[in-house]
Amino acid sequence: MPPVYHRGMTGEALASLGTDADHRDVERALLADGWAWCGTGDWAVALRSPDGEVVARISPFDPTGPYAAALYREAAHTRQVPALFAHRRLAGGGDLQVLEWLRPVGGDEAAAFHRAVAARTPDVAALVDVVRQVHDRACAALPWCGPLDTNPANVMRAADGRLVLVDPYYADGPNLYATAANDPDRVAALIPESERRFMTEIPLAGSGPWLPEDREAMRAALAAADART
């Protein structure tokens, strides 16, 4: 079944892309359709729709993206996750999520929400059950899957005022990328090339900068490991 797009998104912009579209293709298509840059993180960039109601999260490489999308679908009844309008895996291991527009909240409010999740208080119990179930699936399937992310930025506010949990799953980047640098054969054995082709292109806006020569050395090491495999 093709994805259903929110009215704020021109569906043709993505529907015209082939199955081999990667993160660059999606960025170009949306920018040409009037979307605008609105944020950059470690793993993804964000573009906002022309009507301002939705945002596209575009990652060159994100193993946990499908699990975040599963959380948004399976916990939608709680209204404590963002509305997900579309999700698409991209060539090379990238990930596209189209979500309702959200605003940041203060650190104290975000910390209180995270404490409630950790304690499984009654007001978030249904959400926590789904969060844990999906996280268990991610940990079982993915090498280098990290623990639940308690960064305050992962709690945001929807247009109707409700607090939502965003992107609580992540790959253990420091461990994964250290292994890619020091033992690329292990990464090549555990993550197919088709799912990590652009792993050196994540933005690293918070943890960076990433020197171009370091990126190139990692690409070369992984390519050599693939050749050996």
Score class of each variant (00 low, 15 high):
residue 2 P to N: 06
residue 2 P to A: 05
residue 9 M to W: 09
residue 9 M to Y: 07
residue 12 E to C: 09
residue 15 A to F: 10
residue 16 S to I: 08
residue 23 H to I: 01
residue 23 H to E: 03
residue 24 R to W: 11
residue 24 R to C: 07
residue 25 D to M: 06
residue 25 D to L: 08
residue 26 V to R: 04
residue 26 V to E: 05
residue 27 E to F: 04
residue 29 A to W: 07
residue 29 A to E: 08
residue 34 G to Y: 11
residue 35 W to L: 07
residue 36 A to M: 08
residue 38 C to I: 06
residue 39 G to N: 13
residue 39 G to I: 08
residue 39 G to K: 11
residue 40 T to F: 12
residue 40 T to E: 15
residue 42 D to Q: 05
residue 42 D to M: 03
residue 44 A to R: 03
residue 44 A to W: 00
residue 44 A to F: 05
residue 47 L to R: 00
residue 48 R to S: 10
residue 51 D to P: 01
residue 51 D to V: 02
residue 51 D to A: 07
residue 51 D to L: 14
residue 52 G to D: 12
residue 54 V to R: 01
residue 55 V to E: 02
residue 58 I to R: 00
residue 60 P to H: 10
residue 63 P to K: 09
residue 63 P to H: 04
residue 64 T to G: 03
residue 65 G to E: 03
residue 68 A to Q: 05
residue 68 A to K: 01
residue 69 A to N: 09
residue 69 A to I: 02
residue 72 Y to N: 05
residue 74 E to G: 03
residue 76 A to V: 14
residue 76 A to P: 13
residue 80 Q to F: 02
residue 80 Q to D: 05
residue 82 P to A: 02
residue 83 A to Q: 15
residue 88 R to Q: 13
residue 89 R to K: 10
residue 90 L to R: 01
residue 91 A to V: 09
residue 92 G to P: 01
residue 97 Q to M: 14
residue 98 V to G: 06
residue 102 L to R: 06
residue 102 L to N: 03
residue 106 G to C: 04
residue 108 D to F: 09
residue 108 D to M: 13
residue 110 A to R: 03
residue 110 A to F: 00
residue 111 A to K: 12
residue 112 A to D: 09
residue 114 H to N: 08
residue 114 H to I: 08
residue 115 R to Y: 06
residue 115 R to N: 09
residue 116 A to E: 12
residue 118 A to L: 15
residue 118 A to Q: 11
residue 118 A to M: 10
residue 119 A to M: 10
residue 121 T to V: 14
residue 122 P to M: 02
residue 124 V to Y: 04
residue 125 A to D: 15
residue 126 A to I: 02
residue 126 A to R: 12
residue 127 L to H: 11
residue 127 L to A: 06
residue 127 L to D: 01
residue 128 V to K: 01
residue 128 V to G: 05
residue 128 V to F: 00
residue 129 D to G: 13
residue 130 V to S: 01
residue 131 V to E: 00
residue 135 H to S: 11
residue 138 A to R: 00
residue 142 L to N: 09
residue 144 W to N: 04
residue 147 P to Q: 04
residue 153 A to L: 08
residue 153 A to K: 07
residue 153 A to H: 06
residue 154 N to C: 07
residue 159 A to C: 06
residue 160 D to H: 12
residue 160 D to P: 10
residue 160 D to I: 09
residue 162 R to P: 04
residue 164 V to M: 04
residue 165 L to M: 11
residue 166 V to A: 14
residue 166 V to Y: 01
residue 167 D to P: 00
residue 168 P to R: 10
residue 178 A to Y: 12
residue 178 A to F: 06
residue 180 A to K: 02
residue 182 N to T: 15
residue 185 D to G: 15
residue 186 R to S: 13
residue 187 V to A: 04
residue 188 A to R: 00
residue 191 I to N: 04
residue 193 E to M: 11
residue 194 S to G: 15
residue 195 E to F: 01
residue 196 R to Y: 08
residue 197 R to M: 07
residue 197 R to I: 00
residue 197 R to C: 07
residue 198 F to L: 08
residue 198 F to I: 02
residue 199 M to Q: 08
residue 200 T to S: 12
residue 201 E to M: 08
residue 202 I to W: 00
residue 202 I to Y: 00
residue 202 I to M: 13
residue 203 P to A: 02
residue 203 P to C: 12
residue 205 A to H: 03
residue 206 G to W: 11
residue 208 G to R: 05
residue 208 G to P: 06
residue 210 W to E: 02
residue 212 P to C: 05
residue 216 E to A: 14
residue 218 M to L: 15
residue 219 R to Q: 12
residue 219 R to W: 05
residue 224 A to G: 07
residue 226 D to W: 04
residue 226 D to A: 15
residue 227 A to M: 13
